[in-house]
């Protein structure tokens, strides 16, 4: 893999030359958005995963939810929620949070099919996630296992934006202040009672709209202001 600090675009071009035909290669054939682009002209995909645990090496993806943003507008027609098949018993601790039972997980689709569709939708877009390390880790690990290479994508982490914004204003904050729903309240966002991958992806998408509206003062801002 191309070493840090190459941009996702450079790494994408580099990987494209080596990639085998298949979903990942198709994904890589679409250029990444340029960091200088006005964020209102970019497209995004906000994603959230439910998993059996926090370790991408050992734990499984149970479900993936995502929705596409075109500029500063969330397109609900693009909303997807897919359950992923897993043979593994779901630990009680995680089942409590995402409410996915063993039965449901057994009825899920194969990860390869879900991931192929996801990659097709993600191509050319910026990925948005809250605490993006988890999504990036699991998706990249899965891509590597199934398609031979990790996932290369420009990322916006709404949690990191929130942290930077607290720090810039020299404002004290607690860990819980950075939670998706607590941040949503600060921006007067609706609170979904349901907790699953799609509702959290939508919540992250709305949070990003709010953060961007606060950052751009109505005059727009380059994408790079928000990227990891």
């Amino acid at each position: 893999m191309a070493p840090w600090p190459f941009t996702p675009e450079l790494r994408r071009r580099w990987l494209l030359r080596k990639a085998q035909p298949g979903p990942l290669r198709d994904y890589l054939s679409v250029p990444c958005a340029a960091p200088r682009l006005d964020y209102r002209r970019a497209t995004y995909l906000a994603v959230d995963l439910e998993t059996t645990g926090l370790d991408p090496k050992r734990d499984d993806i149970l479900s993936i939810g995502y929705v596409i943003l075109r500029g500063n507008s969330v397109d609900l027609a693009s909303a997807r929620h897919r359950l992923v098949h897993t043979a593994r018993a779901i630990p009680e601790a995680s089942a409590v949070i995402h409410q996915i039972t063993d039965d449901q997980a057994a009825r899920g689709e194969p990860l390869e099919a879900v991931l192929a569709d996801f990659l097709a939708d993600l191509a050319g877009k910026v990925m948005i996630a809250h605490h993006a390390r988890v999504e990036q880790g699991f998706l990249s690990t899965a891509c590597k296992r199934l398609f031979g290479h990790g996932l290369v994508v420009p990322i916006i982490d709404t949690q990191a934006i929130a942290r930077r914004s607290f720090e810039r204003r020299h404002q004290a904050y607690k860990g819980s202040d950075l939670r998706l729903h607590n941040l949503g309240e600060r921006y007067n966002l609706p609170r979904n009672k349901a907790h699953n991958a799609l509702s959290d992806a939508l919540a992250a998408a709305e949070l990003f709209l709010a953060q961007a509206a606060y950052a751009d003062g109505g005059k727009g801002a380059p994408l790079r202001d928000f990227l990891q």
């Binding site: 507008s73 027609a77 909303a79 939508l202 709209l209």
Partner: peptide
């Protein structure tokens, strides 16, 4: 109906 919608956010005073 929800799938026909899009979502936008506006700061106070816009």
């Amino acid at each position: 109906l929800p799938r026909k919608l899009s979502v936008r956010y506006f700061r106070r005073g816009t």
